[in-house]
């Protein structure tokens, strides 16, 4: 496990893009961990929310683009409201997803959704809005 920083993360374009889309200063995170400990989905994630911020602060966007975490976040805002420095983590997760989705990437395939009849419309609408471009 080794990561070589080749460039000041503050100058990284993709980090800047994430800051721009989310409107959050990702550098204000001080790694208290409260987002992760309160996250109802954390146990299913491969990168914990607090680690997401450390990766960003180190400029390692690639790891995040390949991680499951942004796609597991349920945008429940538990972390957002509890973050001591007021970071909207849900928006940052969305920004990371957006980097992918804006390349016309489908995370879910609507045709492969099971039990479409019984799912409430809001479930499908919200899922597709979050996971398709």
């Amino acid at each position: 496990m080794k990561y070589t920083i080749t460039k000041d993360p503050h100058e990284d374009e993709r980090v800047q893009k994430i800051i721009e889309i989310s409107g959050q200063n990702i550098f204000s995170c001080y790694q208290c961990g409260r987002c992760s400990s309160g996250c109802p989905m954390a146990e299913f994630m491969d990168v914990l929310p607090n680690q997401v911020f450390m990766f960003l602060q180190e400029g390692d966007v690639d790891t995040l683009l390949n991680a499951k975490t942004p796609w597991i976040c349920a945008a429940c805002f538990t972390c957002t409201v509890r973050c001591p420095v007021g970071l909207d983590l849900a928006a940052v997760m969305e920004a990371i997803r957006e980097l992918q989705l804006r390349k016309n990437y489908d995370y879910v395939d609507p045709y492969k959704v099971e039990d479409r009849e019984e799912l409430p419309p809001i479930a499908m609408v919200s899922n597709f809005r979050k996971f398709t471009p």
């Binding site: 429940c76 879910v108 959704v113 799912l119 996971f131």
Partner: peptide, 10 residues
């Protein structure tokens, strides 16, 4: 606490 929300689809 969150119920898992729209993840119920996929």
């Amino acid at each position: 606490e969150c119920c898992g929300s729209y993840h119920t689809v996929d």
